[in-house]
Design a binder for these strands. Structure first.
Lengths: 203, 203
DNA sequence: TTTGTATCGATACGAATGTATGCTCATCGG
DNA sequence: CCGATGAGCATACATTCGTATCGATACAAA
């Protein structure tokens, strides 16, 4: 009878289908079958497909926010570069389960390109991450861990872009093969970020 | 009567729809209407939707390959970092037309996550780009434009990842607003790539 | 017990989908 | 002239879609 819990069950079923077949495989009936519910039951929790999709999307957004909050904030004793390295790795899919989640996000991500209401939520997450990174870089520069000739804003933006790239790179790998290669790229990126510039790219 | 030209017309119509509504808005009938053809006419060129989609995808892949070939190869007098900078910018959507193309790619990109036959083609493009970048970095290191403590492979991989991130970042921007900010990130990234490392990220 | 109210399942219905079939022409070789 | 070939179009068909409606069961209140 717990309405909210059932809604989450339905959303979980939607996630499983989206991870396997993308949003193209998501229909009221396929979701109902995956959840072990009848079509009518799903309809009682979500009168419309739009509602169902939006709920699932919001669920995924909340999970992403929670993951971001769980990232080591900087109060620990680690250096900022090390924190950055761990933060990047925290958002990359590591095991089979993480890869399934990432596939779901890939579907939503693409959907956001043509659905502004989804894009707004992604922009909000981006803004949060940007703010966190900006603050971290400011601290890192004060501690001397990062060169000061680049503003924290620039560095934060660069890391966000880098994370997007790393993430998509991981999503496209066949199975759970990435760990080593991924770590290598992350290490390289962090090393370059902590390097002092030798020359500026000519105008 | 030119069969191949008509097929491209149909594919172009598919592209316009995909840019507007994603692959979810693509159906035999909507594509036919967009192309100004009847459903039957489209069917004569593509007996199945799968064929149509695959042809359009291959068309997009060929265009991407052509764009990659058109990128300044390095025989010019420019320094390798400058070449890198221009190469990155060449792949980012600059105007409204480029953004529409990018939206199409976003749809295909997400589709590739759940359709291995699409993923293969993307992997091939990636491999080509990786080889080109690797060679460019090797040349750049010999010329002293890049630090030698990172292998060309690592640097190439990093740039590929960075390009993916930059690209998605551009796709998600509302309209044709990105140029300045995008260039800033590219400049920062190139500057960092050409910097000499100060310290390596702790294990 | 009776009444009322959720919960769920089954089914119905119109719209849209992919695909198949048949028809009308125009063009061209004999 | 005329048969043939193929392009283009309309239509038909079965399936699947989202959504709406109805009946059955369960359980709480009166």
């Amino acid at each position: 009878m717990d309405r909210e819990a059932r809604r989450r069950d339905v959303a979980d079923a939607l996630f499983r289908i989206a991870a396997r077949q993308g949003l193209g495989g998501v229909s009221m009936r396929t979701v109902a079958a995956e959840a072990g519910f009848s079509l009518g039951a799903v309809q009682r929790y979500f009168t419309t497909k739009e509602q169902m999709l939006r709920f699932a999307f919001d669920q995924a957004v909340a999970a992403a926010r929670a993951r971001m909050a769980r990232v080591p904030g900087g109060t620990g004793g680690d250096s900022v570069p090390e924190l950055l390295r761990r933060a990047l790795l925290a958002f990359l899919p590591a095991d089979e389960r993480g890869l399934a989640e990432a596939r779901i996000w890939a579907a939503f991500y693409a959907e956001a390109v043509v659905r502004p209401s989804f894009a707004e939520a992604l922009d909000e997450i981006d803004a949060e991450a940007r703010a966190n990174l900006r603050a971290a870089f400011a601290r890192g520069q004060e501690a001397g861990d990062f060169p000061r000739d680049r503003s924290p804003e620039e560095l934060a933006e660069l890391v966000l872009v880098l994370l997007d790239g790393l993430w998509w790179n991981a999503v496209r790998r066949p199975a759970g093969v990435p760990p080593a290669a991924q770590r290598g790229i992350v290490d390289t990126a962090v090393a370059l970020l902590t390097a002092s510039p030798r020359q500026t790219a000519p105008r």
